[in-house]
Amino acid sequence: MSGVLLAPLAAAPVIPDFGRGSTCIRDNKLFCWDWVQSNWGGTLRPALIQHIELTLIAVVVGFAISFVLALAAYRWSRLEPPVGIVAGILYTIPSLALFQLLVPVTGLSRTSAEIALVSYTILILFSNILEGLRNVPADVRDAAEGMGLTRWQTLWRVELPMALPTIVAGLRIAVVTVVSLATVAVFIVNEGLGAPIYAGLQNAFKTELIAAGALTVALALFADGALVLLQRVLTPWARTARS
């Protein structure tokens, strides 16, 4: 257990030397822009990229799993309660506890981090995909069947496109959740924006803490905005429906 918590320390970046650099850095002022400039390439940018990778992998894998589960539960409604309960339990386990549970199995690896992150997306994505499909009005489904669309064609051409707004809404929550949770993954693997945040915490260096934290927030906002745009492009009909 303690090994896990010590892990980031062992691999932590060198504690900044307060004696060098600008007066701002030496005095550990609230925010030193010059520190950000000189550490962008070496610390912040790699951390940001890793963070995006962690998030993308978790959301893509989580979506794939949830999608299959939701389609199955849509087809056989008896599957919904068991899937819902398991996804609910995974969602409610505190993230730190889950990370620690996984370490004995998958080690201090990116895999452990991803498994934990994925497990948080499933409840949200599963319920939103399922809800989106179920919200397709019965008359539309009836019309599709009556015109000779097969079940599969109805799913891909009618039900999924119509569920898109609800699905994207789920994706937005999932992405924002994962972006923020991925900072905690630093307790297993020294990757992502969690690393500079943790380092900033360890040596009480405010600029690093604030810069990494701000990047995390910016990433979440950016991803959310991108998904909103994506939905606008994919569902032009949803806008006219409201007016």
């Binding site: 009005p137 539309v140 009836d142 019309a143 599709a144 009556g146 119509m162 009909w237 949803a238």
Partner: peptide, 11 residues
């Protein structure tokens, strides 16, 4: 087949 509620595809 024209169903009772029309059932046009809104999307």
């Amino acid at each position: 087949y024209v169903i009772q509620q029309i059932g046009l595809f809104p999307h």
